[in-house]
Each structure stands twice: as C-alpha cells, then as structure tokens.
Simulated assay, not measured.
Amino acid sequence: MYLDIASDGLDLRQPENTRDLYASYYERLGPEQIQKVLVDNDAGELSEDRQHVMIPVAALRRLAAGKVPEGWDAEFDAMIEKARERGWLNEAGDAVQAHLERER
C-alpha cells in the first residue's frame, strides 16, 4: 500500500497490499506543501529528514475502509507488528514510518 500525496489531497492506493508501505508524490511539491496536505487530511507528518512520513495507524485504517477484502485487518495488524519489531513505529506505537518517494 502507498499513500499518494497530491496538492489537492491524498489517497491510499493498493491498500490490500500489506507487504509494503510507502508514501509518494508526482507533482513538484515542496516539504511545506507535503506537510500541509498530510496535516489537512489528518494523515501524519513529514519527518525532520524529509525522507519519511509518520502515518497514524488509525489514518491508514480510515483510508482503507471499504477498499479492502475480508481478513485484511489481521494482515494489517501483522504488518504493523513487523514495523514495531523493526523500530518503524513512533514511541507511542500509534504511527508508522513510511519512506517518501517522488514518482517520475
């Protein structure tokens, strides 16, 4: 799954794929614009290094609602547990780190 960030909002693409998580954008968005879209959509924040997005687990669930097959919750929980084991969750454990990529 990936968080598709655009100047007019965002969408969760391929939410059924719980083996991969990243954030991407196509447009020429600067860090301030990316941060604004994330905050305006209650979908996290840009990391200090500007190479990652911390996405609330609740936001991923919200954005995936109605787009995923039965049984997805268990697969999603397993993905979050793997992220926890690898140190990719924030200290509170309620947001997961996703690499930010500019698509060409």
Rank of each mutant, 00 (worst) to 15 (best):
E45V: 00
S47D: 06
A98N: 03
G9V: 03
S47H: 04
A6E: 14
E103R: 15
G44A: 02
R84E: 12
A65V: 08
Q35W: 00
A43N: 08
D94C: 01
V68H: 11
E32S: 12
A6Y: 05
R84W: 10
N90A: 09
F76C: 01
Y25P: 04
L29E: 02
G93W: 00
A64S: 15
A78R: 15
G9E: 03
E91G: 08
E48F: 07
L10V: 03
V68A: 03
E103P: 00
P15Y: 09
Q97L: 14
D4P: 01
H52I: 00
Y22I: 05
Y25M: 04
E45G: 01
K36N: 02
S7H: 11
D40W: 01
E27F: 04
E81K: 14
G71E: 11
R86H: 14
A83L: 07
L100T: 08
P56G: 05
E45H: 10
F76Y: 12
V96G: 04
E81M: 12
P31W: 08
D49F: 04
M79V: 11
S24W: 07
W88I: 07
K67N: 09
E81A: 15
L89M: 08
V68E: 07
R13D: 05
G9D: 01
P31E: 09
G66C: 03
P31F: 10
A23F: 05
Q33D: 09
I80C: 06
K67S: 09
L3E: 03
R104Q: 13
G71S: 11
L100R: 07
L29N: 03
P31I: 05
D77P: 14
Q33L: 10
A64H: 02
A43D: 04
D8E: 12
G30E: 06
G9Y: 02
G66V: 09
